[in-house]
């Protein structure tokens, strides 16, 4: 047996991965994955972004040996998920957010301990590790509480901790912070970052709809839609890949009705401010240097500018641009 960390096999590799769900009662078949090629190296935190129904969960299920692909190949730590399920299961763990799973009758600590035993963690290691994880997700005080007494968010934090009890080589997080409060989500993100940094070669595959989360956590991101990878790169490179420029928001008064462009730059309008009677004008300038010129033009037209704010292209802009563009004129992945 080749240890996956010594040989240079990727942590996750899929080739032409395809999954079709049979349509029920006359409805057409659903192509959830349509030829996905991914290569995730050991030590990476890799993000899978895509709109609802893009195929992210389907991909994760296949990699977790819960679902067969229709065709194509998927390997985890060099082991084929179909032929070598047992080897794959030894190395992985899965956390799905937004779920209410758990044996209500067990206490939080018992649940984590039990899963550590299913993974064969020696008892001497399991105890302290469970305690550390409970502290990390802020459940130390609830360790002896039965799961059916937990709030939804607390239950989710317990499930999040469960993903780490086996200290897995490759961890799959499917929308792990879904439905968590802002603080809890931030603590868990920091925990993931620390967890990966402190252990050489640990890999995380993450899906999320929170762009900031992906931006903060991921070394690389694949954007997928309708089962196809539209782009795969670092967050910074993805931002650069879409038309850059500066996003400008102006709070103005006295703009002429129906003004749709200024100096050839398209304008979108927000609703009027209820108290101040101002309007919000949004536009994207190809380069920041044009802002003074634009303000002068507005002044000449009798528009009073009360406030100006600008920001650079975000991952969200990149996401929307890439998904909106689709595969037709987008660059092929890799």
């Amino acid at each position: 047996m080749v240890s996956s960390s010594e040989a240079r096999v990727p942590a996750v590799e899929t080739r032409e991965l395809r999954r079709v769900f049979k349509g029920s009662r006359g409805s057409p078949d659903v192509v959830a994955l349509d030829g996905v090629d991914l290569r995730i190296e050991h030590g990476e935190v890799f993000g899978l972004l895509g709109p609802n129904g893009a195929g992210k969960t389907t991909c994760i299920k296949i990699l977790n040996t819960l679902l067969y692909p229709t065709s194509g190949e998927a390997r985890v730590a060099g082991h084929d998920v179909v032929r070598d399920s047992v080897e794959v299961r030894r190395r992985i763990a899965l956390v799905s957010g937004g779920e209410n799973s758990g044996y209500g009758i067990l206490t939080v600590r018992e649940c984590l301990w039990m899963f550590s035993q299913f993974y064969g963690v020696p008892s001497a290691e399991a105890g302290p590790r469970v305690n550390r994880l409970l502290a990390a997700v802020g459940l130390s005080d609830l360790a002896k509480t039965r799961i059916n007494r937990l709030s939804t968010g607390q239950r989710q934090r317990m499930n999040f901790a469960r993903g780490f009890v086996s200290d897995p080589e490759i961890l799959f997080l499917d929308e792990p912070t879904l439905g968590m409060d802002v603080n809890a989500a931030r603590e868990l993100r920091e925990f993931v970052t620390r967890w990966v940094r402190e252990r050489a070669g640990r890999t995380v595959l993450l899906t999320t709809h929170y762009m900031a989360e992906a931006d903060q956590l991921c070394d690389r991101i694949a954007i997928i839609d309708r089962g196809r990878v539209l782009a795969c790169d670092t967050p910074a490179a993805l931002r650069r890949s879409v038309e850059g420029g500066q996003h400008v928001e102006l709070e103005v008064m006295g703009a002429p009705e129906g003004l749709s462009d200024v100096d050839g730059v398209a304008v979108t309008w927000g609703a009027p401010h209820p108290d101040r009677g101002t309007h919000t004008m949004k536009l994207r300038l190809p380069d920041g240097g044009r802002l003074p010129l634009l303000l002068r033009t507005l002044e000449e037209r009798g528009v009073a500018v009360r406030g100006v704010s600008t920001r650079e292209t975000s991952l969200e802009d990149a996401f929307i641009a890439i998904v909106g563009r689709g595969l037709d004129d987008g660059e092929a992945p890799k």
Binding site: T65, V86, R89, I92, Y103, F115
Partner: peptide, 18 residues
Amino acid sequence: EYETLKYVYASPVGMFTY
């Protein structure tokens, strides 16, 4: 009910043993 089957199944416990 418990929604735990997938976690048990994807763990190394093995359904037979379990």
